Amino acid sequence: MDQIVMHLIHIFRSFLALGYVPESWKSVRVVFIPKPGQIAHKIAKDFRPINLTSFLLKTLERLVEIYLRKNTLVARPLHVSQHAYDQGRSVDSALQFVVGYIEKEYRGSFRQHTL
């Protein structure tokens, strides 16, 4: 196991240094799994897409994420408006922020026109 791990580390570091990802790792297979509780599975919303990608690519992604969280993000924390790489924040929280901002501006604009 130790020999395999050392080879993988060397390969991963080389790929990162070169900015290279093997074509075979980029291949993705999408499987659609029926959502539970649906009576009939007739429309797209009745299914959950699952992406099957190379476990080597997933391993590399995880290692990069760990590095970012333990090194880069410690030295240079994220801006308060950033919604990635922050516990409890996601695309959904970013959308909620934008919608809230738009609603606030709309209400302010509405008040100005009614006065």
Rank of each mutant, 00 (worst) to 15 (best):
R62N: 07
V99N: 06
L52R: 02
I39N: 03
I102V: 14
H10Q: 12
R62Y: 10
G88P: 03
G19Q: 02
Q38V: 03
Y101D: 13
R13Y: 03
I4F: 09
P77G: 01
A40N: 11
R13Q: 09
F97L: 09
R29M: 15
Q112E: 13
E23Y: 07
Q112A: 06
V99I: 15
L78H: 02
G108P: 00
H41S: 02
E103W: 07
Q82M: 06
R62G: 03
F97M: 04
H83V: 05
K26H: 00
H7S: 04
I4H: 06
V21Y: 13
V28D: 02
K45R: 10
A44Y: 03
S109R: 09
W25C: 11
H41K: 15
E105W: 07
I66G: 05
S14G: 08
H41Y: 14
A94E: 03
F32T: 11
I9D: 07
K35N: 08
L57S: 10
F55V: 15
S81Q: 12
E65W: 04
E65T: 14
H7A: 09
L52P: 06
T72F: 12
D92M: 08
R89A: 08
Y67C: 04
R29I: 14
I33A: 07
F32E: 08
T53Y: 05
T72D: 00
L78Q: 10
R29C: 09
I50P: 01
L18W: 15
M1I: 02
R29G: 05
L115H: 06
S54M: 02
T59N: 04
G19V: 03
L78G: 03
T53A: 14
L56C: 14
E61D: 15
M6Y: 06
E61C: 11
S27W: 05
V74K: 12
Y106H: 09
Q112S: 13
L68P: 01
Y101M: 01
F110R: 08
G19P: 07
E103F: 06
D2C: 02
L78K: 09
V31S: 04
S81V: 12
H79F: 05
W25F: 15
I39A: 05
F55R: 06
R111H: 14
T53I: 10
L63G: 12
E61H: 03
L68T: 08
Q96G: 13
P34V: 11
L73V: 02
S24H: 10
N71L: 08
K26N: 11
I4A: 06
K104C: 09
K45W: 01
L73D: 03
K26R: 13
R89L: 15
K42A: 09
E103S: 11
Q96L: 15
R69E: 15
V91G: 00
K35S: 11
L63E: 02
L95R: 06
V31G: 00
D86E: 14
K35G: 10
